[in-house]
Design a protein around this nucleic acid. Structure first.
Length: 526
RNA sequence: GGGGGCGUAGCUCAGUCGGUAGAGCAUCGGCCUUUUAAGCCGCUGGUCGUGGGUUCGAGUCCCACCGCCCUCACCA
């Protein structure tokens, strides 16, 4: 840098935005009052919703009538609360604050007459977005709003960043995803979605725990990918100078645990797939896989239906306040909104075989491969050089899947064996597999197999797959010899299940984009 | 990857045919002890996503790039 006169007279302070500079000045004013602008440990804080529930109509009325009489005993409940200042109405000697926490909003009145001087001065120096700690009795104002009539107000934390506009809030989806910390406090429905997400995941765990399944953890870093056909993320393990990939499924390790003698296991965790990013796909997402020795895809179907119905019931009876349950709803009547439609989780889920749906959609049986080829050609679907079964599946996805009623959770059963490499073929018709896929709201939510446990058939199916892989696939995909070894040791017959947890949360919270149910969705760096 | 849309004050958004950059809220100053997006008076605040180009003159037209949204394609 050449030596020149400094453009500005002093420190980096000049670089800060004027709005931040004003807030820094207000922070110093708070410190000058003798308060710690960044707060401290607070005892006996209750949520805003809990505080509002403690309001006592009779005590309030008694105080209003007799409060000024000699010897009157004030029975109004007193509360200590903390929340972010969302609105700030300064009437001179009476300041109204609207605080917000994860349970909702609550009004606080800071009166020069009734609040201590420190608190009143703090209210004067507060900015929107600061967090304040208020203490005082619960009253109703003459417009009927439950209010904490502050006897003291203290600093929770100073906010140096100006908050979004008080009425429109934060609307820009890009900032909402990149700065979720603003989105969460600004948009209560976002807080509700993520509160519910955590509760849904807790309930999923409890569901399997109560049925005797053991939660386990298997490797994320692996020498080779397996259990699905997605492209993995690659990394390098320096200590051993070897290539590693991040898991694209948990299947092959969980099955090894069945071999080892764990009869019922599940793993709920993050999966990584190096593929497209869109409204239904994030590069890292959450799945749950479940395995049950001596079960099959039908035992898994029963589990899955009660899990989904139970989750939907939980959502249906949960109000905006996560601590409050609304009047009970019969589980057989549970319905949830999904965009423009309503999904019926209460009635028994629909079941169709793959062939049934196929024939209904195409008008000819699945055995008529000649017509299938013609049809694929007419519809300009991929067909050149594809085996019959893949052409049939193209047609199925293109024509039959859209026929599934999005408002009716639907199991599609008996998929072709050729597209189900880890699945046991049906004994009476081996060209079809003991498998189902669950569709709800137009999305594929999960899949389940009667697991293949014959090592010789498994080897053959792996080899078939390898032969069909392109060069890039070949480079990362090798036979998982150890998994075959495990099958040789003997894996009990089993049912297996995989569910997309993010998609379940989307359905339950009525969010159409996966980015709205992942706290920090993947974003390109700016 | 294809197509479409968007990017302007801290936030939400206008900006006509190419002619000095606008509003509301927030901020700042003043008044107000029952407000409800409080109200009233006054004042601030801009690298118009980035970089080029056309033009006497570009937020506006053209090109490239960046980011986001929608959609199609791809995706066991």
């Amino acid at each position: 840098m050449p030596e020149t006169e400094p453009q500005h007279e002093s420190t980096g302070e000049l670089d800060v935005h004027r709005l931040e500079a004003q807030r820094r000045a207000n922070r110093d004013a708070v410190a000058a009052l003798g308060l710690a602008p960044y707060g401290q440990r607070e005892k006996d804080l209750i949520s805003l919703a809990e505080a509002a529930r403690q309001y006592d109509e009779n005590a309030d009325a008694a105080f209003k009538e007799h409060g000024k009489e000699e010897g009157f005993a004030d029975q109004r409940p007193r509360v200590r609360i903390g929340g972010r200042i969302m609105l700030h109405r300064d009437n001179g000697k009476l300041i109204w604050l609207n605080l917000r926490d994860h349970t909702g909003d609550l009004q606080v009145a800071v009166s020069k007459r009734d609040c201590d001087e420190l608190g009143f001065n703090l209210a004067k120096a507060s900015d929107l977005g600061d967090i304040a700690i208020a203490e005082g009795p619960l009253v109703k104002t003459r417009t009927g709003e439950i209010t904490v009539w502050a006897s003291s107000l203290r600093a929770g934390v100073k906010s140096l960043a100006p908050p979004p506009e008080k009425w429109s809030g934060l609307a820009d989806p890009e900032i909402r995803y990149r700065k979720r910390y603003i989105d969460l406090y600004t948009n209560p429905e976002v807080m509700r979605t993520f509160t519910l997400r955590s509760q849904i995941i807790a309930r999923i765990r409890r569901f399997w725990d109560e049925r005797g399944f053991l939660e386990v953890e298997t490797p994320v870093l692996q020498p080779q990918p397996g259990g699905a056909a997605a492209r993995p993320f690659r990394s390098h393990l320096n200590a051993l100078d070897m290539r590693v990939v991040m898991r694209i499924a948990t299947e092959l390790h969980l099955k090894r645990l069945l071999v080892g003698g764990m009869p019922r296991v599940y793993e709920l965790g993050r999966i990584f797939r190096n593929e497209g990013v869109d409204r239904q796909h994030n590069p890292e997402f959450t799945s749950i896989e479940v395995y049950e020795a001596f079960g099959d895809c039908w035992s898994m179907l029963d589990h899955t239906e009660s899990l989904m119905r139970g989750l939907a019931h939980f959502i249906a009876v949960t109000t905006a306040d996560p601590d409050v349950i609304s009047e009970d709803i019969d589980i057989r009547d549970v319905k949830l909104p999904w965009g423009d439609i309503t999904v019926d989780y209460g009635s028994p889920f629909a079941r169709f075989t793959y062939s049934e749906l196929y024939e209904k959609a195409l008008g000819f049986p699945i055995s008529d491969t000649k017509r299938a080829r013609e049809e694929a050609k007419n519809r300009k679907l991929k067909h050149e050089g594809l085996d019959d079964v893949f052409i049939i599946n193209e047609l199925f996805e293109e024509v039959a899947e859209p026929l599934i009623d999005p408002g009716k959770p639907t199991f599609v059963t008996e998929y072709p064996s050729a597209i189900s490499p880890l699945t046991r073929p049906l004994p009476d018709k081996p060209q079809f597999a003991g498998r189902w896929d669950l569709f709800i709201g137009g999305m594929e939510i999960g899949t389940s197999y009667t697991e293949l446990n014959d090592p010789d058939i498994q080897i053959a199916k792996f080899q078939e797959q390898l032969a069909g892989a392109d060069e890039e696939e070949q480079a990362i995909r090798t036979m998982d010899d150890d998994f075959i070894e495990a099958l040789k040791v003997g894996m009990p017959p089993a049912g297996g299940l995989g569910l997309g947890v993010d998609r379940i949360v989307m359905l339950m919270t009525n969010n159409r984009s996966i980015r709205d149910v992942i706290l920090f969705p993947f974003m390109r760096p700016t």
